[in-house]
C-alpha cells in the first residue's frame, strides 16, 4: 500500500514525558522542496487535553494534522507517540477526522461508524459486512450518546451536516483512541450546532482522550479548548498556553 507509515520512534519515557501522548519536534515540511509549509513546529500534547490550532487558510494547519496522523511524512523533524505502555489491541491510538469527514456516502451511518473497528475485526468476516456483537453494541451506544440513535440505518446522504459530523465522531471514538485529530472541526456547521457538538465531544473525551483540532473560529477555540495555539505561515507563533491568558493577545495580535 502506498500509505506513508508514520515514523514512530521508540518513545523514551523520561521525567519530562510524563503524561504526554504526543511530542512533535521541529517539524519542517515542504511539498515542492522550495516553499516550506511548516517551519519548525514544536508541539506537546498531554493526556486528556484538548487543544485547538487557530489559523487562516494556508497557514499549514492541515499539513500539521496530517503529519500528526501519520498520513504525511514530514520533510524534517519527528513525531513521538507515548502510548505504548497500556495500549490494548482493541485500541487504535490515533483517530483522524478529515476536513470533509471522509464518510462513505453510499453506506449507512452505523456501517461508517463500524469502519473504526476494521483493524480489530477478522478480514473475512468484514468482507461479508459482519462485525462482532460487542462492536455493534458499542457503535449503537456511541451513536445514541451523540444523539443520532435514530439515524443508525440511514444512508449518509440522508443525514444533515451536523448528523454527519456526529457519525464521524462516533467513528473516531469507537477506535478507543488515546488521541483524536480533527481537521477544521465543525467549521462547516452553524454556530449553534457546532457549540452543541463540541460540548458533546468535550463530555465524551474529558480527561480520557486527548483532542487536537484545527479551526479558524476564535470564539469556538476560546470556548472549548484547554489550550489554544496559533499557526501563522507555518510557525506556531504562540506556544501552548492557557486559553484565558492568550485569547486577548490573539485578538490584539490581529488574527484575521
Amino acid at each position: 500500500m502506498n500509505t506513508i507509515k508514520p515514523k514512530i520512534s521508540k518513545p523514551r519515557f523520561t521525567d519530562d514525558t510524563v503524561g504526554l501522548v504526543l511530542r512533535a519536534k521541529s517539524l519542517w515540511h515542504s511539498y515542492n522542496q522550495k516553499n516550506f509549509v511548516l517551519e519548525g513546529v514544536d508541539l506537546d500534547l498531554k493526556e486528556g487535553m484538548s487543544m485547538m490550532v487557530l489559523g487562516r487558510s494556508g497557514s499549514g494547519k492541515t499539513t500539521l494534522i496530517k503529519i500528526l496522523a501519520g498520513l504525511i511524512r514530514p520533510s524534517r523533524g519527528q513525531v513521538e507517540y507515548f502510548f505504548d505502555r497500556d495500549a490494548t489491541p482493541s485500541s487504535r491510538v490515533v483517530a483522524y477526522i478529515p476536513q470533509n469527514l471522509g464518510l462513505v456516502r453510499n453506506l449507512s451511518a452505523i456501517e461508517n461508524v463500524l469502519m473504526g473497528v476494521l483493524g480489530r475485526t477478522p478480514t473475512v468476516a468484514t468482507m461479508f459486512g459482519r462485525f462482532r456483537a460487542v462492536d455493534h453494541e458499542q457503535a449503537a451506544r456511541l451513536m445514541a450518546d451523540l444523539g443520532i440513535g435514530d439515524k443508525i440505518d440511514k444512508k449518509i446522504w440522508h443525514l444533515s451536516g451536523g448528523e454527519r459530523q456526529r457519525v464521524a465522531i462516533a467513528r473516531a471514538l469507537i477506535q478507543n483512541p488515546r488521541l483524536i485529530l480533527a481537521d477544521e472541526f465543525v467549521s462547516q456547521l452553524d454556530p449553534v450546532t457546532s457549540m452543541e457538538i463540541l460540548a458533546m465531544v468535550k463530555k465524551l473525551t474529558q480527561n480520557k482522550i486527548a483532542f487536537l483540532a484545527t479551526t479558524h473560529d476564535v470564539l469556538l477555540a476560546k470556548e472549548y479548548a484547554d489550550f489554544v495555539v496559533v499557526m501563522r505561515n507555518g510557525k506556531l507563533i504562540m506556544p501552548a498556553a492557557f486559553k484565558d491568558m492568550i485569547i486577548e493577545e490573539i485578538m490584539k495580535d490581529g488574527y484575521e
Binding site: M1, A95, I97, L101, G102, V104, L107, L118, M127, R171
Partner: peptide, 25 residues
C-alpha cells in the same frame, strides 16, 4: 482521497479499504 485517508486511518487492510470505501463509492 479524504474518504480513503479516513478509512485507511482506522488501521484496515487493503481488502477492507476496497470493500468499505472504494467499492461503495
Amino acid at each position: 482521497g479524504e474518504v480513503i485517508e479516513a478509512v485507511r486511518s482506522t488501521g484496515c487492510n487493503r481488502l477492507q479499504l476496497f470493500r468499505f470505501a472504494i467499492l461503495p463509492e
